[in-house]
Amino acid sequence: MKDSLSQSSTARDRILIRLKRGVPENPAPLPSVPQDHEHFTSYLDVKDRDSLLGRFQHRFEALQGEFFLVDSPQEAGKALSNLVSGIEPNRILSQDDSLIEKVLKSSSLASEKVKSTDDLLAQDSLSFEAYEIGVTTAFKLVARTGSIVMTCRQAAGRRLSVLPPLHIVIAKASQLIPSWEEGIESLRDESDFSYASFITGPSRTADIEKILVLGAHGPKRLALILIKE
């Protein structure tokens, strides 16, 4: 790489010199950061949880996300049992997390040993392809567009939320925020991650005659179990 490094640094200098020649002497000021309320019709001016929840559910379901609103982790366990019924427990992979553990305990999987990402790491056999279902938490939930924000820390890495055909997210209503503005802002505070993603509905494509098909390469199904308490 040594050769190319020196090549890169000569190229860098030359490119920057050329660019500097094209920079105006007195550039117009950089406009202030765009505000959501200035641009979007669906900006929610409210902070109350019910309106955020209503909007989120409306958008999430419109994109064919499967939405389950529950009152407690125990109830979440029931919702999870329904989602995983018929799937071999050893084809389920979950993120290491105390909330998920609680939910698992109240589910049909209570007596099973559901593998977590940490188990996989310990065995160093990351054969993710074998898993049908990935269970993760979320970082934030954006009401305006029904999006789930994840960072590679909360979602236990990059693959768990994209490789298995069914992605189940377990989150709390207190994680709802109105807009992308706030989503981005909270990512800025949470600076220690290498990867973050705004997920809006299950994977899709319209590359063939603009016909919408769900489940292109990412999850075919996206489910959210939202705990109210």
């Binding site: 990402t117 790491l121 990351l126 567009t145 290498s194 705004f198 997920i199 809006t200 994977s203 990412g218």
Partner: peptide, 23 residues
């Protein structure tokens, strides 16, 4: 494409971090 937002919007700040499980 006439979508409100696309399905996935990814922000990548580097290779796998030290404490991260994969990447």
């Amino acid at each position: 494409t006439g979508q409100e937002v696309t399905c996935y919007n990814s922000i990548i700040k580097g290779p796998k971090g030290e404490e991260e499980v994969d990447g």
